[in-house]
Amino acid sequence: MNLPLRLLCLGLGWLMVGFAVAGIFLPVLPTTPFLLLAAGLFARASPRLERWLLEHPTLGPSLRLWRDKRAIPARAKTAAVALMVTSFVFFCIASKPSLSLAAVVAAAMLLPALFIITRPTA
């Protein structure tokens, strides 16, 4: 891999790690998808950083579980779907959207929720 592309992958990988860490504290921002992106970017640019991420005591287990079994822990599934529902209810209460806008937002949240629910549970 040429140096500019490697540096781009490293920079984007660290940006994804930053988003993932923010997602730990912000309920509307997912964590694992950003970690998966970071691991993929690090795999291309730095196997050492990919290994660090996969072996990290806090961040690594969900990544390894997804890589090995394409599974999501039951606790993570429950939390993700509950936060989606909570966010939708908050959105409806706070903004009082039209029925059509509420339907679009509900559909946008329903698709990822269905994806999460239909993955194997670990």
Rank of each mutant, 00 (worst) to 15 (best):
94 A>I: 00
15 L>H: 02
88 F>W: 12
100 S>H: 14
97 P>E: 01
48 R>A: 13
6 R>F: 00
84 M>W: 04
113 A>L: 11
16 M>S: 15
59 L>K: 13
106 A>L: 14
21 V>K: 04
17 V>D: 05
69 K>L: 14
78 T>M: 07
11 G>A: 14
25 F>D: 02
96 K>L: 03
48 R>K: 13
67 R>H: 06
65 L>E: 10
54 L>F: 08
103 A>T: 08
79 A>C: 07
29 L>I: 12
3 L>N: 04
13 G>A: 07
36 L>H: 00
81 V>K: 04
44 R>M: 07
61 P>A: 10
87 S>G: 06
102 A>E: 03
71 A>M: 11
47 P>Q: 08
48 R>Y: 04
96 K>C: 00
117 I>L: 15
36 L>R: 00
47 P>T: 05
27 P>L: 14
103 A>M: 07
104 V>T: 14
14 W>P: 01
74 A>Y: 05
90 F>G: 00
88 F>R: 02
29 L>T: 01
16 M>G: 05
120 P>I: 07
36 L>G: 01
43 A>H: 10
19 F>S: 04
80 A>Q: 05
68 D>E: 15
66 W>G: 12
104 V>K: 15
36 L>Y: 00
75 R>W: 13
69 K>P: 00
14 W>L: 14
40 G>F: 02
85 V>S: 01
7 L>R: 15
43 A>L: 11
114 L>M: 14
35 L>K: 08
27 P>W: 12
34 F>L: 13
13 G>D: 03
44 R>K: 11
90 F>A: 02
29 L>S: 03
16 M>P: 03
49 L>A: 09
107 A>G: 09
116 I>V: 15
61 P>V: 09
113 A>G: 07
43 A>E: 02
107 A>I: 04
54 L>D: 06
27 P>E: 07
79 A>S: 13
98 S>V: 07
85 V>L: 09
34 F>I: 13
78 T>F: 04
18 G>M: 15
50 E>H: 12
20 A>T: 03
87 S>R: 00
50 E>D: 13
55 E>F: 10
26 L>T: 09
35 L>N: 06
120 P>A: 12
107 A>Q: 01
65 L>Q: 08
116 I>D: 02
35 L>M: 11
30 P>Y: 03
105 V>A: 08
121 T>P: 00
85 V>C: 03
74 A>I: 10
13 G>N: 01
7 L>S: 08
98 S>C: 08
100 S>M: 14
87 S>V: 00
15 L>M: 14
50 E>Y: 06
117 I>G: 01
42 F>R: 08
102 A>K: 03
41 L>T: 04
83 L>E: 08
64 R>S: 03
53 L>E: 11
46 S>N: 04
49 L>G: 03
80 A>F: 10
118 T>F: 12
104 V>N: 11
56 H>C: 05
64 R>P: 01
93 I>K: 01
99 L>S: 09
55 E>H: 14
93 I>L: 07
109 M>Q: 12
104 V>P: 06
36 L>F: 00
45 A>P: 02
108 A>F: 11
42 F>M: 09
37 L>R: 04
31 T>M: 09
84 M>P: 04
68 D>N: 14
76 A>D: 10
75 R>G: 15
73 P>R: 14
10 L>H: 04
43 A>C: 09
29 L>G: 03
110 L>K: 02
93 I>M: 01
58 T>D: 01
11 G>L: 13
42 F>L: 12
99 L>C: 03
54 L>K: 06
83 L>K: 06
92 C>Q: 01
36 L>I: 09
